[in-house]
Simulated assay, not measured.
Amino acid sequence: MEKTPVDDEYLKEIDKARRELRALIYNERCASLMLRLAWQDACTYDPESKIKGGPNGSIKSDQELGRQENGGLSKAVKLCEEVKAKLKKVSYADLYQLAGVVAVEVTGGPTIHFLPGREDSLEPPQEGRHPHPEEKSASHLRDIFTTRMGLTDQDIVALFGSHTLGKDDHFGKGKWIGNLKKFDNSYFVELLKKDASLLKVFPADIALVEDKKFRNYVEMYAKDEDVFFKDYAAAHKKFCELGCNLDTSIIPKVPPEKLKLIMPKVKGVIGIVIVSTATLGYLRRRKNNQLKK
């Protein structure tokens, strides 16, 4: 599929999609569901496979959506269609990952830097790439998130902190349900309680407190929510960009004349490089738009 350039119009649509998703998630109370949609799409990434998977929107295919691990997500896909119908350019891959970012933010979680430009794919990846919730082994989590995806122990524990929103109705039946309206560090606080086993969490969750290295991060995040938010934002960004080769030179649309106003606040060579890069990017986009006309 031909890649859609991330031009000014695309960025404007991303802003529109963000606004629409905020209203949708608030009205439907579906933050947990949208976060799970983003997670399930991204978690299929395997750089060694012919079909690499990852955050490419393939989860909307009937074949992938019908898999047991994606049960209940048809509702999330359907809700996203309401937003997609109001857009012309934004890919499903970007829409689903933006939905996850917005779900965290509107429930009081950290702001996550979102880079657009993901390409859609219609090829469902191999089945069985997601972590098995009933698998208690810490090595199982590392095989998936570290060996296959390149994430660290810190990333893994931080990402699992998203369970603070609880599980949606299908995924969480008979399991612990967190506060569906509030993204905080309560997941880690609860895991460290002596009766954590009574929370009805999955064995995979318990692995975080039984493994010494994982537990260090659990204790740190239970103690300091600000640290958790910082690490979660970084881990989420890394996770939702797996294999996407996004253009990191995309800078907020600020004309050169406005950049001059903030120049005195920027110190040193690094500041000059940032402003210069933004200026060149702006001029390049403007030139491309003129050529199209």
Rank of each mutant, 00 (worst) to 15 (best):
67 R>H: 03
50 K>L: 13
87 L>Y: 08
96 Y>G: 00
63 Q>P: 09
70 N>F: 05
76 A>M: 09
71 G>W: 08
91 S>H: 09
71 G>H: 12
80 C>Q: 02
71 G>M: 14
69 E>Q: 10
59 I>W: 09
73 L>D: 06
74 S>A: 14
89 K>G: 07
54 G>V: 07
63 Q>K: 13
75 K>M: 10
44 T>L: 10
51 I>G: 11
80 C>S: 10
73 L>K: 06
57 G>T: 01
60 K>F: 09
55 P>I: 03
51 I>C: 11
83 V>W: 00
80 C>K: 02
77 V>D: 01
94 D>W: 02
96 Y>D: 00
57 G>K: 00
97 Q>L: 08
49 S>N: 15
92 Y>L: 08
97 Q>M: 08
60 K>Y: 08
50 K>C: 14
56 N>Q: 03
49 S>F: 12
80 C>G: 06
69 E>A: 15
68 Q>F: 13
92 Y>M: 12
74 S>M: 12
53 G>D: 12
90 V>Q: 02
99 A>S: 08
53 G>S: 08
54 G>Y: 02
88 K>F: 04
56 N>R: 03
95 L>N: 00
85 A>I: 14
76 A>Q: 09
49 S>M: 14
48 E>H: 15
51 I>N: 13
65 L>C: 02
70 N>P: 09
94 D>E: 08
78 K>W: 11
50 K>Q: 15
79 L>D: 03
48 E>K: 15
56 N>A: 04
99 A>R: 05
82 E>N: 11
46 D>I: 11
84 K>N: 01
78 K>Q: 12
82 E>M: 10
93 A>N: 08
79 L>E: 10
60 K>A: 01
90 V>K: 03
73 L>Q: 13
97 Q>G: 08
74 S>H: 14
60 K>E: 13
58 S>E: 09
89 K>F: 06
67 R>K: 12
50 K>E: 15
52 K>G: 06
54 G>I: 04
59 I>R: 00
97 Q>Y: 01
55 P>L: 13
46 D>Q: 14
73 L>W: 04
99 A>N: 05
55 P>Y: 06
49 S>A: 15
82 E>F: 01
48 E>D: 14
87 L>N: 07
44 T>A: 11
46 D>A: 12
91 S>V: 01
55 P>M: 07
50 K>R: 11
75 K>N: 13
72 G>R: 06
79 L>M: 14
89 K>S: 09
56 N>M: 10
72 G>W: 07
77 V>N: 06
82 E>G: 10
97 Q>N: 07
71 G>K: 11
71 G>L: 15
99 A>Q: 01
94 D>C: 06
95 L>K: 07
66 G>W: 07
79 L>I: 05
54 G>E: 03
48 E>G: 14
44 T>H: 11
61 S>F: 06
59 I>E: 02
66 G>M: 04
47 P>L: 14
86 K>P: 11
66 G>V: 02
98 L>D: 00
83 V>T: 03
49 S>L: 15
99 A>T: 00
87 L>H: 05
49 S>P: 12
95 L>E: 00
95 L>Y: 03
83 V>Y: 05
59 I>N: 04
73 L>G: 03
80 C>P: 02
61 S>R: 14
97 Q>F: 00
78 K>M: 10
97 Q>I: 03
97 Q>C: 12
73 L>E: 09
46 D>P: 13
95 L>I: 06
46 D>H: 13
97 Q>P: 06
98 L>Q: 00
86 K>M: 10
60 K>G: 09
56 N>F: 00
61 S>G: 08
79 L>F: 04
49 S>C: 14
56 N>C: 03
57 G>Y: 01
